[in-house]
Amino acid sequence: MSYLKPSFRHPDLPVNDLGYTKKNYEGAISTLCAGCGHDSISSAITQAIFELSIAPHNIAKMSGIGCSSKTPTYFLGNSHGFNSVHGRMPSVATGANMANRDMIYVGVSGDGDTASIGMGQFTHAVRRNVNMMYIVENNGCYGLTKGQDSATSDVGSKSKKGDPNPFEPIDLASIALQLGATFVARSFSGDKEQLIPLIKAAIAHQGFAFIDVVSPCVTFNNNPGSTKGYEYVRDHLAATGTVDFVPMKDEITTSYEAGTSQEVTLHDGSVVHLHKADSRLDIHSRRSALALIKDYKANDQLLTGLLYMDPDSQELHETIQSSNKPLRALTELDLCPGNKVLTSINASLR
C-alpha cells in the first residue's frame, strides 16, 4: 500500500534560481480520483512556479469548494492557503490581496464554484481587476457532489448519468472578456506544454489573469457523449498558437516570422510571445477574442491558448491608490502620523 509518496526524487533534478528543486513546490499526495484532470493542473502549477523561482512563502493559494478547490492541498505545500466557502473565494482573495499586495495570489476554482454559486463574486473580482491568477478547473460537472451537470456543460452533453444537458452553457472566457478581464486564456489539463507558459504569463501579469482549463472528470464526465472528456476534447482542440514566456532576466533568442507573432512586454520586463496559429487573432482586442471563440465553437472546436492581454492593465491597488506597503508592514507612526499631519489634512479640506 502506498498512500505515501516515497521521499526520493530524481537525483539530477534541476534547481531554480533560489536553489530549490520541484520537490520544494510539491504538496501532499492527491486524494482525487486516479486520472482526474485536476491533478495535471496541480502539476502544471507546481512546475510553472518552480520555473519562475518564486519563494513558496510569497504565495497564497485561494480556493472555494469542489474537487478542484481541494487541489491547493496537493501543490505548493510550503505556501499559504485559504480554503473558503463554496463560491466565495473571489471575495476572500480580494480581501487578502488588499491587506497584502506583496503576495502572489493563486486562485483555483471549479466550474460549479465559479459559474454557479460563485458567479456574483467572480464577476466583481474580474471587474475590479484584482491582481491574481484565477484558474477554473472546468469539467462541466459538480465532481465533488457526484457529477451533476454544471453551468458550463454544453447543450446535449451527457454525463455518466446519461441525460443530455438541456441548458445553454456559460462560456467563462467570454464572460471574463466582457467583464473587462485584463488577461484571458483557455487551456486543457492534458496539454502541459501549453498550460505551463500560460500560468507563468498569468502570474507575471499585473491584474486579474483568468485561465479556463478544461479538465476532465474521469469518474462522472469522461464517457462517450460528454463534451468534456479526454477523447472529445482532444478531438476538438484548436489553439490560438504557442506561447513563450521569457522572464525578464533571460534574453530573447528565438526569432519569429513577421506577421505570425505578437509580443507583450509586462510591467516587470518579462515578455509573453504568442506564435500565432490563426492570424485573425489580435491579443490586444477583446472583440477579436470574443469573435474567434464563437467562430471556433460554431465549428465544434474548442479554442485554447492565449486569447487576450491588456499590457496597460491597472490593477485594483493602483485604481484605488491604496498603501504601497502591505498592511502588516505599516507601523504605528504610519497609521497615526500625529497632530502635524492631521492639521495639514484638515487645512487641505478647508
Binding site: H10, G190, E231
Partner: peptide, 14 residues
C-alpha cells in the same frame, strides 16, 4: 491508456 498524465504527475522520480 487515455493519456490523462496521472502517472506522469505522480511519479516521484519523473
Amino acid at each position: 491508456c487515455i493519456e490523462c498524465d496521472a502517472c506522469v504527475d505522480i511519479c516521484p522520480t519523473d
